[in-house]
Amino acid sequence: MECFDVAVVGAGPAGSTAALAARRGGADVVLLDRSDFPRDKPCGDGIAPEVFDVLAGLGVADVAAGYPAVPALRLVSPGGEVVARRLHAGTHTIPRRVFDHRLVAAAVDAGVRFRRHRVRTVAHDDDRVVLDGRFAARVVIGADGAGSVVRTALGHPTNPPGHLALAIRGYAPAPAGPPEQRIVTIPGRWPAYAWSFPIGDGRANVGYGELLTGGALTRGYLMARLGALLPDLDLAGATDWRGHHLPLSTRRPSPGRGRLVLAGDALSLINPFTGEGIFYAVVSGTLAGTAAAGAVAATGGADVAARYRRGLARRLGAHLRHTAVTARLGRWPRLVDAAVRAARDDQAVFDTLLGVGLADGRLNAATLWRIIRRL
Protein backbone atom coordinates (compact mmCIF):
# COMPACT_ATOMS: atom_id res chain seq x y z
CA MET A 1 0.00 0.00 0.00
CA GLU A 2 1.25 3.49 -0.87
CA CYS A 3 0.99 6.00 1.96
CA PHE A 4 0.76 9.80 1.65
CA ASP A 5 -0.12 12.84 3.70
CA VAL A 6 -2.83 13.88 1.23
CA ALA A 7 -4.65 11.97 -1.51
CA VAL A 8 -6.65 13.97 -4.05
CA VAL A 9 -9.33 12.07 -6.00
CA GLY A 10 -9.93 13.64 -9.41
CA ALA A 11 -7.43 15.64 -11.46
CA GLY A 12 -9.62 18.35 -12.94
CA PRO A 13 -8.99 22.00 -12.00
CA ALA A 14 -10.21 21.50 -8.42
CA GLY A 15 -8.08 18.41 -7.88
CA SER A 16 -4.92 19.74 -9.51
CA THR A 17 -5.04 23.02 -7.59
CA ALA A 18 -5.75 21.12 -4.36
CA ALA A 19 -2.72 18.93 -4.98
CA LEU A 20 -0.57 21.97 -5.83
CA ALA A 21 -1.65 23.88 -2.72
CA ALA A 22 -1.09 20.89 -0.44
CA ARG A 23 2.33 20.27 -1.96
CA ARG A 24 3.29 23.93 -1.57
CA GLY A 25 2.30 23.55 2.08
CA GLY A 26 4.86 20.77 2.52
CA ALA A 27 2.60 17.73 2.23
CA ASP A 28 3.43 14.50 0.40
CA VAL A 29 0.62 14.32 -2.16
CA VAL A 30 -0.81 11.79 -4.60
CA LEU A 31 -3.24 12.84 -7.34
CA LEU A 32 -5.55 10.08 -8.57
CA ASP A 33 -7.66 10.07 -11.71
CA ARG A 34 -9.30 7.35 -13.77
CA SER A 35 -7.87 8.88 -17.00
CA ASP A 36 -4.50 9.64 -18.41
CA PHE A 37 -3.90 13.22 -19.52
CA PRO A 38 -4.59 14.94 -21.81
CA ARG A 39 -8.24 13.92 -21.84
CA ASP A 40 -11.46 15.62 -22.89
CA LYS A 41 -13.95 17.01 -20.40
CA PRO A 42 -17.34 18.41 -21.48
CA CYS A 43 -17.51 22.05 -20.47
CA GLY A 44 -18.03 25.52 -21.90
CA ASP A 45 -14.25 26.03 -21.65
CA GLY A 46 -14.64 29.70 -20.66
CA ILE A 47 -11.93 30.84 -18.25
CA ALA A 48 -12.50 34.14 -16.42
CA PRO A 49 -9.46 36.34 -15.70
CA GLU A 50 -9.88 35.80 -11.96
CA VAL A 51 -8.98 32.13 -12.48
CA PHE A 52 -5.49 33.12 -13.61
CA ASP A 53 -5.07 35.29 -10.50
CA VAL A 54 -5.69 32.22 -8.32
CA LEU A 55 -3.30 30.11 -10.37
CA ALA A 56 -0.62 32.79 -10.20
CA GLY A 57 -0.83 32.55 -6.42
CA LEU A 58 0.09 28.87 -6.78
CA GLY A 59 3.04 29.70 -9.00
CA VAL A 60 1.33 28.55 -12.21
CA ALA A 61 1.80 30.82 -15.22
CA ASP A 62 1.29 30.64 -18.99
CA VAL A 63 -1.75 28.39 -18.70
CA ALA A 64 -3.44 30.44 -21.43
CA ALA A 65 -0.47 30.38 -23.82
CA GLY A 66 -1.68 30.08 -27.41
CA TYR A 67 -5.29 30.98 -26.58
CA PRO A 68 -6.01 34.69 -27.05
CA ALA A 69 -8.40 36.57 -24.81
CA VAL A 70 -11.92 37.07 -26.15
CA PRO A 71 -12.52 40.82 -25.80
CA ALA A 72 -16.33 41.09 -25.75
CA LEU A 73 -19.53 39.48 -24.50
CA ARG A 74 -22.98 39.60 -26.13
CA LEU A 75 -25.95 38.53 -24.00
CA VAL A 76 -29.55 38.17 -25.17
CA SER A 77 -32.23 38.02 -22.47
CA PRO A 78 -35.40 35.85 -22.57
CA GLY A 79 -37.39 38.84 -23.84
CA GLY A 80 -34.88 39.71 -26.56
CA GLU A 81 -33.01 42.51 -24.80
CA VAL A 82 -29.35 42.67 -25.86
CA VAL A 83 -26.18 43.91 -24.17
CA ALA A 84 -22.85 43.76 -25.99
CA ARG A 85 -19.83 45.20 -24.20
CA ARG A 86 -16.10 44.84 -24.16
CA LEU A 87 -14.58 42.93 -21.27
CA HIS A 88 -11.93 44.83 -19.33
CA ALA A 89 -9.57 41.88 -18.97
CA GLY A 90 -11.11 39.56 -21.54
CA THR A 91 -11.87 35.88 -21.03
CA HIS A 92 -10.17 32.89 -22.59
CA THR A 93 -11.70 29.80 -24.16
CA ILE A 94 -9.29 26.95 -23.51
CA PRO A 95 -10.38 23.36 -24.22
CA ARG A 96 -10.31 21.33 -21.06
CA ARG A 97 -8.12 18.78 -22.84
CA VAL A 98 -5.44 21.49 -22.78
CA PHE A 99 -6.28 23.42 -19.61
CA ASP A 100 -6.56 20.40 -17.31
CA HIS A 101 -3.43 18.80 -18.74
CA ARG A 102 -1.42 21.95 -18.08
CA LEU A 103 -2.59 22.02 -14.46
CA VAL A 104 -1.77 18.35 -13.92
CA ALA A 105 1.69 18.93 -15.42
CA ALA A 106 2.22 21.89 -13.07
CA ALA A 107 1.28 19.72 -10.08
CA VAL A 108 3.64 16.93 -11.14
CA ASP A 109 6.43 19.46 -11.70
CA ALA A 110 5.86 20.66 -8.14
CA GLY A 111 6.42 17.14 -6.77
CA VAL A 112 2.90 15.71 -6.70
CA ARG A 113 2.75 12.01 -7.62
CA PHE A 114 0.14 11.23 -10.28
CA ARG A 115 -1.44 7.78 -10.48
CA ARG A 116 -3.99 6.63 -13.02
CA HIS A 117 -6.54 4.89 -10.83
CA ARG A 118 -10.32 4.91 -10.53
CA VAL A 119 -11.28 5.10 -6.85
CA ARG A 120 -14.22 2.89 -5.93
CA THR A 121 -14.09 2.49 -2.13
CA VAL A 122 -13.27 4.87 0.71
CA ALA A 123 -12.63 3.39 4.15
CA HIS A 124 -11.49 4.86 7.47
CA ASP A 125 -8.65 3.10 9.28
CA ASP A 126 -7.74 4.72 12.63
CA ASP A 127 -5.83 7.90 11.76
CA ARG A 128 -5.95 7.60 7.98
CA VAL A 129 -8.27 6.96 5.03
CA VAL A 130 -7.74 3.98 2.72
CA LEU A 131 -8.76 4.07 -0.93
CA ASP A 132 -9.40 0.68 -2.58
CA GLY A 133 -6.88 -0.93 -0.24
CA ARG A 134 -4.08 0.58 -2.38
CA PHE A 135 -3.60 4.16 -1.16
CA ALA A 136 -3.65 5.53 2.37
CA ALA A 137 -3.62 9.20 3.38
CA ARG A 138 -4.08 11.38 6.43
CA VAL A 139 -6.50 13.54 4.41
CA VAL A 140 -8.54 12.80 1.28
CA ILE A 141 -9.84 15.58 -0.96
CA GLY A 142 -12.74 14.58 -3.19
CA ALA A 143 -12.54 16.53 -6.44
CA ASP A 144 -14.11 13.79 -8.52
CA GLY A 145 -17.02 15.66 -10.06
CA ALA A 146 -20.78 15.41 -10.04
CA GLY A 147 -20.73 11.64 -9.40
CA SER A 148 -18.14 11.88 -6.63
CA VAL A 149 -17.24 8.67 -4.81
CA VAL A 150 -15.93 10.69 -1.88
CA ARG A 151 -19.21 12.62 -1.67
CA THR A 152 -21.07 9.31 -1.54
CA ALA A 153 -18.74 8.11 1.24
CA LEU A 154 -19.75 11.20 3.22
CA GLY A 155 -23.40 10.19 2.86
CA HIS A 156 -24.46 13.00 0.53
CA PRO A 157 -26.82 12.24 -2.37
CA THR A 158 -26.49 13.84 -5.77
CA ASN A 159 -28.32 17.09 -6.44
CA PRO A 160 -32.08 16.65 -7.00
CA PRO A 161 -34.11 18.15 -9.89
CA GLY A 162 -34.35 21.90 -9.59
CA HIS A 163 -30.74 22.06 -8.45
CA LEU A 164 -29.17 20.19 -11.36
CA ALA A 165 -28.72 21.27 -14.97
CA LEU A 166 -27.90 19.30 -18.12
CA ALA A 167 -25.87 20.68 -21.02
CA ILE A 168 -24.51 19.46 -24.34
CA ARG A 169 -21.25 20.74 -25.79
CA GLY A 170 -19.47 20.48 -29.12
CA TYR A 171 -16.82 22.24 -31.22
CA ALA A 172 -18.09 24.03 -34.34
CA PRO A 173 -16.46 26.32 -36.91
CA ALA A 174 -16.27 29.79 -35.37
CA PRO A 175 -18.88 32.20 -36.75
CA ALA A 176 -17.68 35.04 -38.96
CA GLY A 177 -17.10 38.48 -37.48
CA PRO A 178 -15.15 39.94 -34.55
CA PRO A 179 -14.56 37.44 -31.75
CA GLU A 180 -17.06 37.65 -28.93
CA GLN A 181 -18.62 35.31 -26.45
CA ARG A 182 -22.34 34.93 -27.09
CA ILE A 183 -25.01 33.78 -24.65
CA VAL A 184 -28.60 33.60 -25.86
CA THR A 185 -31.34 32.73 -23.39
CA ILE A 186 -34.70 31.25 -24.27
CA PRO A 187 -38.21 32.44 -23.43
CA GLY A 188 -40.54 29.85 -21.98
CA ARG A 189 -37.84 27.50 -20.73
CA TRP A 190 -35.86 29.91 -18.58
CA PRO A 191 -33.40 29.38 -16.89
CA ALA A 192 -31.70 27.99 -20.01
CA TYR A 193 -29.30 29.32 -22.62
CA ALA A 194 -27.16 28.56 -25.66
CA TRP A 195 -23.57 29.70 -25.99
CA SER A 196 -20.81 30.18 -28.52
CA PHE A 197 -17.31 30.85 -27.18
CA PRO A 198 -14.57 31.32 -29.82
CA ILE A 199 -11.30 29.54 -29.06
CA GLY A 200 -8.98 31.42 -31.42
CA ASP A 201 -8.06 28.50 -33.65
CA GLY A 202 -11.01 28.72 -36.05
CA ARG A 203 -13.34 26.80 -33.75
CA ALA A 204 -15.86 27.76 -31.10
CA ASN A 205 -17.09 25.85 -28.07
CA VAL A 206 -20.88 25.74 -28.54
CA GLY A 207 -23.66 24.26 -26.50
CA TYR A 208 -27.00 24.49 -24.78
CA GLY A 209 -27.91 23.89 -21.13
CA GLU A 210 -31.16 23.80 -19.18
CA LEU A 211 -32.28 23.29 -15.60
CA LEU A 212 -33.56 19.78 -14.92
CA THR A 213 -36.99 19.90 -13.31
CA GLY A 214 -37.86 16.21 -13.31
CA GLY A 215 -38.37 15.25 -16.94
CA ALA A 216 -35.71 13.75 -19.18
CA LEU A 217 -33.94 15.93 -21.76
CA THR A 218 -32.85 14.16 -24.93
CA ARG A 219 -29.84 14.90 -27.08
CA GLY A 220 -32.16 15.74 -29.98
CA TYR A 221 -34.05 18.25 -27.85
CA LEU A 222 -30.85 19.96 -26.65
CA MET A 223 -29.44 20.14 -30.17
CA ALA A 224 -32.68 21.58 -31.54
CA ARG A 225 -32.67 24.32 -28.92
CA LEU A 226 -29.07 25.18 -29.71
CA GLY A 227 -29.77 25.40 -33.43
CA ALA A 228 -32.84 27.59 -32.88
CA LEU A 229 -31.06 30.06 -30.61
CA LEU A 230 -27.83 30.30 -32.63
CA PRO A 231 -28.94 29.62 -36.21
CA ASP A 232 -25.69 30.92 -37.75
CA LEU A 233 -23.68 28.04 -36.28
CA ASP A 234 -22.53 25.25 -38.61
CA LEU A 235 -23.69 22.40 -36.40
CA ALA A 236 -23.29 19.92 -39.27
CA GLY A 237 -19.57 20.64 -39.16
CA ALA A 238 -19.34 20.33 -35.38
CA THR A 239 -17.56 17.51 -33.56
CA ASP A 240 -16.99 16.04 -30.10
CA TRP A 241 -20.54 16.34 -28.80
CA ARG A 242 -20.78 15.38 -25.15
CA GLY A 243 -23.34 15.93 -22.44
CA HIS A 244 -22.69 16.71 -18.78
CA HIS A 245 -24.51 17.43 -15.54
CA LEU A 246 -24.03 20.64 -13.58
CA PRO A 247 -24.69 20.30 -9.81
CA LEU A 248 -25.71 23.83 -8.81
CA SER A 249 -24.51 25.56 -5.65
CA THR A 250 -28.09 26.07 -4.45
CA ARG A 251 -27.90 22.54 -3.01
CA ARG A 252 -24.41 22.22 -1.58
CA PRO A 253 -23.62 19.41 0.86
CA SER A 254 -21.42 19.90 3.91
CA PRO A 255 -17.85 20.59 2.70
CA GLY A 256 -16.38 17.77 4.74
CA ARG A 257 -16.26 15.60 7.81
CA GLY A 258 -13.41 13.93 9.61
CA ARG A 259 -10.51 13.48 7.18
CA LEU A 260 -12.63 13.87 4.03
CA VAL A 261 -13.38 17.16 2.23
CA LEU A 262 -14.95 18.05 -1.12
CA ALA A 263 -14.02 20.62 -3.74
CA GLY A 264 -15.33 21.84 -7.10
CA ASP A 265 -18.25 20.01 -8.71
CA ALA A 266 -18.15 17.36 -5.98
CA LEU A 267 -19.22 20.14 -3.60
CA SER A 268 -21.89 21.35 -6.07
CA LEU A 269 -19.93 24.52 -6.68
CA ILE A 270 -21.56 25.53 -9.96
CA ASN A 271 -22.92 29.07 -10.31
CA PRO A 272 -26.73 28.66 -10.44
CA PHE A 273 -27.18 31.63 -12.76
CA THR A 274 -24.43 31.07 -15.34
CA GLY A 275 -23.30 27.45 -14.97
CA GLU A 276 -19.70 28.63 -14.38
CA GLY A 277 -17.60 26.27 -12.29
CA ILE A 278 -13.91 26.65 -13.09
CA PHE A 279 -13.38 29.69 -10.88
CA TYR A 280 -15.05 27.88 -7.99
CA ALA A 281 -12.97 24.80 -8.74
CA VAL A 282 -9.59 26.51 -8.50
CA VAL A 283 -10.61 28.55 -5.44
CA SER A 284 -12.08 25.62 -3.51
CA GLY A 285 -9.23 23.36 -4.60
CA THR A 286 -6.67 25.85 -3.36
CA LEU A 287 -8.51 26.24 -0.06
CA ALA A 288 -8.85 22.46 0.38
CA GLY A 289 -5.18 21.82 -0.34
CA THR A 290 -4.05 24.59 1.98
CA ALA A 291 -6.31 23.29 4.76
CA ALA A 292 -5.06 19.73 4.21
CA ALA A 293 -1.39 20.67 4.45
CA GLY A 294 -2.01 22.78 7.55
CA ALA A 295 -4.05 20.06 9.24
CA VAL A 296 -1.46 17.36 8.52
CA ALA A 297 1.28 19.52 10.02
CA ALA A 298 -0.73 20.54 13.09
CA THR A 299 -2.95 17.58 14.00
CA GLY A 300 -2.05 14.78 11.62
CA GLY A 301 -5.04 15.76 9.49
CA ALA A 302 -7.75 15.39 12.14
CA ASP A 303 -9.07 18.97 11.88
CA VAL A 304 -9.00 19.39 8.11
CA ALA A 305 -12.78 19.70 7.69
CA ALA A 306 -13.02 22.50 10.25
CA ARG A 307 -10.09 24.36 8.69
CA TYR A 308 -11.54 24.02 5.23
CA ARG A 309 -15.03 25.08 6.29
CA ARG A 310 -13.65 28.28 7.80
CA GLY A 311 -11.59 29.02 4.71
CA LEU A 312 -14.57 28.55 2.39
CA ALA A 313 -16.77 30.77 4.54
CA ARG A 314 -14.21 33.57 4.51
CA ARG A 315 -13.51 33.36 0.78
CA LEU A 316 -16.85 32.46 -0.79
CA GLY A 317 -19.53 32.61 1.90
CA ALA A 318 -20.95 36.06 1.16
CA HIS A 319 -20.65 35.58 -2.58
CA LEU A 320 -22.54 32.28 -2.51
CA ARG A 321 -25.35 33.91 -0.56
CA HIS A 322 -25.54 36.58 -3.25
CA THR A 323 -25.63 34.00 -6.05
CA ALA A 324 -28.46 32.18 -4.29
CA VAL A 325 -30.43 35.43 -4.18
CA THR A 326 -29.55 36.13 -7.83
CA ALA A 327 -30.76 32.67 -8.83
CA ARG A 328 -34.10 33.19 -7.08
CA LEU A 329 -34.58 36.63 -8.61
CA GLY A 330 -33.51 35.30 -11.99
CA ARG A 331 -36.47 32.91 -12.11
CA TRP A 332 -38.51 35.92 -13.34
CA PRO A 333 -37.63 36.51 -17.01
CA ARG A 334 -38.90 40.10 -16.86
CA LEU A 335 -36.33 40.84 -14.16
CA VAL A 336 -33.59 39.32 -16.31
CA ASP A 337 -34.75 41.54 -19.19
CA ALA A 338 -34.47 44.55 -16.90
CA ALA A 339 -31.01 43.51 -15.74
CA VAL A 340 -29.81 43.24 -19.34
CA ARG A 341 -31.27 46.68 -20.14
CA ALA A 342 -29.49 48.11 -17.10
CA ALA A 343 -26.20 46.44 -18.08
CA ARG A 344 -26.56 47.81 -21.62
CA ASP A 345 -26.96 51.32 -20.25
CA ASP A 346 -24.42 51.22 -17.44
CA GLN A 347 -20.92 49.70 -17.44
CA ALA A 348 -20.94 49.43 -13.64
CA VAL A 349 -24.03 47.21 -13.71
CA PHE A 350 -22.47 45.07 -16.45
CA ASP A 351 -19.27 44.64 -14.45
CA THR A 352 -21.12 43.83 -11.22
CA LEU A 353 -23.32 41.18 -12.83
CA LEU A 354 -20.32 39.68 -14.60
CA GLY A 355 -18.47 39.42 -11.28
CA VAL A 356 -21.43 37.65 -9.64
CA GLY A 357 -21.81 35.26 -12.57
CA LEU A 358 -18.19 34.41 -13.36
CA ALA A 359 -16.12 35.01 -10.22
CA ASP A 360 -16.79 35.97 -6.60
CA GLY A 361 -18.57 39.30 -7.03
CA ARG A 362 -21.51 40.50 -4.98
CA LEU A 363 -24.66 42.44 -5.70
CA ASN A 364 -24.96 45.97 -4.36
CA ALA A 365 -27.79 48.38 -3.71
CA ALA A 366 -26.90 50.64 -6.63
CA THR A 367 -27.04 47.75 -9.11
CA LEU A 368 -30.35 46.46 -7.76
CA TRP A 369 -31.86 49.95 -7.91
CA ARG A 370 -30.75 50.42 -11.53
CA ILE A 371 -32.31 47.08 -12.45
CA ILE A 372 -35.58 47.84 -10.68
CA ARG A 373 -35.83 51.20 -12.45
CA ARG A 374 -35.76 49.37 -15.80
CA LEU A 375 -38.55 46.94 -15.03
Rank of each mutant, 00 (worst) to 15 (best):
T152V: 09
A153M: 06
P157H: 11
P160L: 10
P160H: 10
P161D: 12
G162T: 09
L164D: 00
L164Q: 03
L164M: 14
L166T: 06
L166G: 01
L166H: 04
A167M: 10
A167R: 02
A172V: 08
P173V: 06
P175G: 06
A176G: 13
P178N: 01
P179E: 10
P179G: 03
E180I: 00
E180L: 13
Q181S: 13
Q181E: 13
R182S: 08
I183A: 11
V184I: 13
T185S: 15
W190S: 10
W190H: 15
A192P: 03
Y193K: 06
Y193F: 15
A194N: 07
A194T: 07
S196P: 02
S196M: 04
P198T: 05
I199Q: 01
D201N: 15
A204F: 03
A204G: 06
N205W: 03
V206E: 02
V206N: 03
G207D: 04
Y208C: 03
E210L: 12
L211Q: 08
L211S: 04
G214C: 11
L217N: 00
T218A: 11
G220D: 15
G220C: 04
M223I: 12
A224D: 15
A224F: 08
R225W: 04
A228P: 05
A228C: 08
A228L: 12
L230A: 07
P231E: 13
D234G: 12
D234N: 14
A236K: 14
A238M: 10
A238N: 10
T239A: 14
T239H: 15
R242E: 15
R242Q: 15
R242C: 08
G243M: 11
G243F: 06
H245N: 12
P247A: 12
L248N: 02
S249Q: 11
R251N: 13
R251F: 13
R252P: 01
R252S: 13
R252I: 01
P253Y: 07
P253K: 05
G256C: 09
G258F: 08
L262S: 00
L262F: 07
A263T: 06
A266E: 04
L267Y: 12
L267E: 02
N271M: 11
P272Y: 07
P272N: 11
P272Q: 11
G275I: 04
I278N: 02
A281V: 07
V282G: 02
V283N: 00
V283T: 13
S284F: 05
S284Y: 06
G285H: 05
T286A: 13
